[in-house]
Design a protein around this nucleic acid. Structure first.
Lengths: 233, 233
DNA sequence: TATAATTAGTCTTGTATAAGTATTGATGTA
DNA sequence: TACATCAATACTTATACAAGACTAATTATA
């Protein structure tokens, strides 16, 4: 069965974005141009663009055009870093320190990550809010998918923006499993809290626009001063 | 400025659902009928219906029709009760006990809840998974918005389904603030765990189809055997 | 009972027109 | 001349409508 035309149009655009030929912030062809270029009507091109907007991949404004969604630290924060003050406001978290190393993948990581990588890059970080360490997180990505990443330390504060800018890997959604535990030994040391302190543990699988699991991240956060904010529907 | 026609169509349908004249599971008029009835084209009626589907208010299947989304305990569970086994599966949580009482609203509750109620109904519950109490939750709703609710104990297991069936109050989304704490004294007693046990606290504001905050819920859960599952995008 | 025809619904595509945005160029004035 | 103002215009997306294709359930028929 042939897929509908508008899906064909969608796929070509997704490919162009994922390949980097339409970089972050770039203006897409207009509905009319796109239709002419791909041999469909303006209405069909329009439907594809609206679908992509609904998925958050592009943004459209009447009278101006359609643009590849720009992931700034702020928007990325809003989506994936979600510690908030009790009143709902948010300061920027500060990156205290990080270590980046390359190592062999565990069997679980091989099974979960896209490409079944033999070798992974592990990024360990401590973030602080209000002059106080609050989050200890470890991110793991395939070394093959992010060549040379380990040589680019220090990495930018917001990894998802960096993935998109430097590797055209666009994170669009994530699964998270949350639990409350007594802080782990490693995190207790990293955060400078006594053993037994309750922490919020978040285990996240980040998924990109091509539906690939490209990052595993596990974090422990202190939530006596801040809340982890979620909006569900 | 007159709103676009498709929004007018949307609003009339939302009103019909919220008023109960289109109950849960009911079939809506077809695109063609709806268009004729409201004096717009089939395409415009279609656009309204698709928008409502995107919001989860109706479900459409080609060749059959459009139906008001049915909230079963299962779908409601999937949306708003999110404790999972580590492997992602889910048993049905059992309702251990509940108490329902009417009392004066606190100033915070008055400020948050729709209608600034003087009087609220408080529903306290303990749920268990695998023969073990895991969640202690307290829900608070406006007494005016849910008349007679306190007289209907025992309440059904899933409140959101009940709200829709009995009061045509349709919860469509929620804000949640999560944190990890040592268990509160009340919850320690309710769950039968020692003081100091880490629990996941969830404070939720549930919002209905008319954009009203209709329920405040605070729960404490044990997460040593289960995870709290979230999907973000 | 099986099978074909019909009906009633959504889905896809196309076209015309409205409305919003930004640029350009003319015009008036200090 | 230099500069601000304003109208025209050449883009863009948004709205609305219409025709035909596809899909599922029901009804008629062999």
């Amino acid at each position: 069965m042939a897929p509908p035309l508008y899906q064909v149009v969608m796929n070509t655009i997704v490919d162009r974005i994922a390949s980097g030929s339409l970089p972050s912030g770039a203006m897409l062809p207009s509905e009319t141009q796109l239709g002419a270029e791909l041999g469909v009507s303006q209405g069909t091109a329009r439907k594809a663009l609206m679908e992509l907007e609904a998925r958050g991949l592009v943004q459209r404004v009447q009278g101006r055009g359609t643009f590849v969604t720009v992931r700034t630290p702020e928007t990325s924060l809003f989506n994936f870093f979600r510690l908030r003050n009790p009143d709902g406001t948010l300061e920027s978290p500060r990156l205290e320190w990080e270590t980046v190393r390359r190592r062999a993948a565990t069997p679980e990581e091989r099974a979960e990550l896209f490409g079944r990588p033999e070798s992974v890059i592990e990024i360990e970080r401590v973030r602080s809010l209000a002059q106080r360490p609050v989050t200890h997180e470890v991110s793991v990505v395939s070394a093959a998918l992010f060549p040379g990443l380990a040589d680019r330390v220090p990495l930018p504060n917001t990894l998802y923006v960096f993935y998109q800018q430097a590797y055209s890997v666009i994170i669009v959604r994530a699964d998270e499993r949350l639990s409350a535990h007594a802080v782990s030994e490693a995190s207790a040391k990293a955060l400078g809290v006594p053993a037994g302190t309750p922490v919020l543990e978040v285990r996240r699988r980040a998924i990109d626009v091509l539906d690939r699991v490209v990052e595993l991240r596990s974090s422990q956060s202190l939530t006596d001063q801040h809340d982890y904010f979620v909006s569900v529907s």
